[in-house]
Design a protein around this nucleic acid. Structure first.
Lengths: 149, 149
DNA sequence: TTCTAAATTTAGAATAGTTCCAAGAATTTG
DNA sequence: CAAATTCTTGGAACTATTCTAAATTTAGAA
């Protein structure tokens, strides 16, 4: 436990961020829970260990992480912002039925976008949505409902 | 004027939507203003012609349009949702500096995403961001400020 | 045309996610 | 250790959107 924490402390230091307990725990949760959590979810999970934690701190920390490149935002649905510790370029697929979000590999060369040759592309967000394999064939109905509108 | 309106009435009818005055005007504005407006912006522009218009109606209409495939949402920034009358697949580039949004052509074959072979992809959203040609070379400073954080 | 039922619009209240703010706590610097 | 800076906290404030219930409009039948 101690050791793993140190990894995140290091990460933060390397990016010039003071590794406060709160920040370490947020970053750690973001890495261990690969489910693209919202700020609320992160708060709910780590708050028990640190009773004085404020939701504002979680937001502050997430902003700091995003600015430093230690995390990225995922805006798949128009509603709440989600966060992802995978900083390399990849796509996000969201199932319309169960709401699950899945990362997928994506290698698109810039040459494909000749229209943007004069632009400086700093970030690429690729969001697909539709049906995941489970929800595609509705034999059983394992829908988590979360993604209903 | 009369004639153009009829085009949108037809569009709505073809999609099984009753072409009320409000709906026609929203759809028309969405087509004529190619700047990915927000619901508020649409409201602000067409409200003068129809004093009783409610913002809720604009939202209702936009939902109807999106559900029927006559419009799409654009979620580039985590904040407000924008709307686009271009329904074919294309990318959106947002300048971090001036906030301008630009559509760009994009043809990516599904074969690129072998990981998603079992998935049913219904919608593709490709959002890039960075600097537009104007903001890239800061000789003059034509920043609209809108995109600052 | 008048009546009726269904669809649409409306205004304002309610909600949800996020940001702001001012005060207090912790940490670093001199 | 004192001072300055940085970070955290709780709650208020804000903003985009949705909800709700009432009013209006519409299409079609009588």
């Amino acid at each position: 436990m101690e050791e793993t924490t140190t990894v995140y402390q290091e990460m933060l230091r390397e990016h010039g961020i003071r590794p406060s307990y709160q920040r370490v725990r947020v970053l750690q949760y973001l890495h261990e829970a690969a489910n693209h959590p919202t700020a609320e979810v992160i708060f709910a999970h780590i708050a028990p260990e640190m009773p004085s934690l404020s939701l504002a701190t979680v937001y502050n920390t997430l902003h700091t992480l995003v600015h430093s490149g230690l995390a990225r935002t995922v805006n798949l649905h128009g509603v709440e912002t989600r966060y992802d510790a995978s900083t390399h370029t990849h796509g996000h697929f969201r199932c319309e039925n169960c709401g699950t979000i899945r990362n997928f590999r994506i290698d698109i060369e810039d040459s494909l976008f000749d229209e943007l040759s004069q632009y400086e592309i700093r970030q690429r967000d690729v969001y697909f949505s539709g049906l995941c394999p489970t929800c595609r064939t509705p034999i059983t109905h394992p829908q988590t409902q979360e993604g209903k509108e």
